[in-house]
Design a protein around this nucleic acid. Structure first.
Lengths: 337, 337
DNA sequence: CTGAAAGCGCTAACAG
DNA sequence: CTGTTAGCGCTTTCAG
């Protein structure tokens, strides 16, 4: 008999070793309550001794479900997704689901369609934490929950869980107004959250009877874009004493623009970021920022997903979580002139 | 024609629609050359019309290989992995392999063992871009390549591809020495790369006949740790005019410590980071940093993986890529006293 | 509660 | 080049 290299033990081997039938092993694996204690232990012992690991592929094929949910991230470079993912997993894991993550940018770079990948993988559901191209989600059979953003790429019946970006920007702006600032600018950029944040800023300004000043509408949301938008703002509008940036990275860009012009933060100009990323907490930056509670958003999205899986025909679930302003050292009362 | 709900089309449906046998469809899928042009087109048309997607699960089960490689990341918060992953995928994708990514931190948080997950998934190989706990890699049947670090968690026969951290730190230190600095400190931290970087720093200092000053050996490698180590260095060693930080994030921590002490960068103290992360390139920071070429490391690791898959018994492959110093605005000639 | 039997959708080894 | 034949390892009826 040829010495087989390492024939992975199968459920069959486990059954034999434990002296039971394969079905019983399968039941134990799935945690069925209809198994006697003695047999369960025998099976578990056999599994342990053999180093047996159930084959996902076989299980998926037989059960027609993978217990895997695909998570679509926009860009691994934007650390925003980490907390979101942690939140998702905090409820998906205990429920026995596995998260499979893909990055839109990376997939685009290799000319792949991540949605196709997930479909080939037979994911049971999709979490979209990105703004997919319109139509990219068409024909996905699985349930979809859009997390962290409110743009559904044509998936009209998708569930949505996101932070209330509009409210977040309003909080930031009101904080500045409360500190006595009157000429407050906003750095925006092309993106779903960006549009909502801008609206929040404008609403707060209008409510206080102040004139809005927005720059960056034609740009993106990177550090570079933040720098450019801040330059436009500072050079175009006189007497700005406070800035609401579209996100933390843009705020760091603004910091450079301010320093270039000899304006100190927060003595001369106050600055608020958005996302409360690790960046904002760095001692060297100490950015006041809006915490969107992404972790909670992730957890809520996962709960929505689970309930959708149970009730495929329930009406779309739409949930907006309230953000919170984290005040650090980049904002201060307006200098009394 | 009855409107079928959505029984995913199978290879069988495709065959029928194209008027060929299932085997032929399978051949087309695998891109076999032994198929006539006409039939290939018929099959492709049928696939298109039906919206057919091959089932990974079935393919994996039947072929006993998943064409998937598991990639173990240390922490999604550390953006270092993004380029590494991009490099990996740039060669894995064209070869028909899929990368499945797991984060050690996240998995630990949910009490999961990522290696187990990959094994259950039947990955064909493992890329370890992290420092796994000793023994965590025991009993993995699949080939392992350690990427980006040189610590093999007990996987003695693993292939290794990494940046030459020792050389990187030497380059950084020599750059500073070349600028006329004599009292140069180093901020280290507990980590594999950290140890190598420290050695590089010490070697360069010794070669120049300078006394080393290292702090942070008991800490980690975060911004906070960098701040603490910098405080220790500045308060413990008089006249430091340059600092080699263990990484960029630590360098940002050091920036805070320097500012606290009224020391300006680079006029009074020069600072070098490591990793050339996006952080270093921010206009507001402009950190001179060591670029480890992670993208290239990733690509090389993937190549090593592919060749290992072809030659399971080849001797271990060990490859160290040379890093490069990126000079920005945080370093300047030592003030002539 | 347990065992037997029938596939899930695909690949692979052959014989036409 | 094509069709047939077996399974891959597991879940799932369905009888015992």
């Amino acid at each position: 008999m040829p010495a087989d290299a390492s024939p992975r033990p199968t459920i069959y081997d486990v059954a034999q070793r434990a002296g039971v039938s394969k079905s019983l092993v399968s039941l134990v694996l799935r945690g069925s309550p209809h198994v006697s204690e003695a047999r369960r232990e025998a099976v578990e012992a056999a599994i342990e001794e053999l180093g047996y690991r159930p084959s996902r592929a076989a299980a998926a094929l037989a059960s027609q479900r993978t217990r895997t949910v695909g998570v679509l991230i926009d860009d691994f470079h934007n650390p925003w997704f980490v907390e979101l993912l942690a939140g998702l997993r905090s409820v998906l894991d205990p429920a026995g689901y596995t998260a499979s993550v893909a990055d839109l940018q990376l997939d685009a770079a290799s000319g792949r369609n991540p949605v196709d990948g997930f479909l080939a993988q037979h994911v049971d559901a999709l979490v979209v934490a990105a703004e997919p191209a319109p139509g990219a989600l068409d024909g996905v059979g699985a349930p979809i929950v859009v997390a962290g953003t409110r743009e559904l790429g044509g998936a009209q019946d998708a569930d949505i869980v996101a932070g209330d970006d509009e409210l977040g920007a309003r909080l930031a702006t009101e904080h500045l107004i409360g500190l006595g600032h009157r000429r407050i600018g906003h750095l925006t950029g092309r993106s779903g959250p960006g549009a909502h944040r801008r609206r929040g800023y404008e609403a707060a300004m209008a409510a206080a009877g102040l004139a809005p000043a927005v720059t960056g509408e034609d740009g993106g949301t990177s550090e570079e874009d933040g720098y450019a938008a801040a330059c436009d703002l500072l050079d175009g509008t006189a007497g700005v004493t406070a800035i609401v940036a579209g996100n933390d990275v843009m705020a760091v860009g603004a910091l450079a623009a301010l320093r270039e012009r000899g304006l100190s933060v927060p003595a001369e100009v106050s600055l608020v970021g958005h996302d409360d990323s690790p960046l904002a907490a760095y001692r060297y930056l100490q950015l006041t920022s809006v915490d969107g509670h992404s972790r909670e958003v992730g957890a809520a999205a996962a709960r929505a997903l689970l309930s959708r899986l149970d009730h495929p025909d329930a009406p779309p679930h739409r949930e907006l979580l309230a953000p919170e302003l984290v005040v650090r050292a980049s904002t201060a009362p307006a200098a009394s002139v």
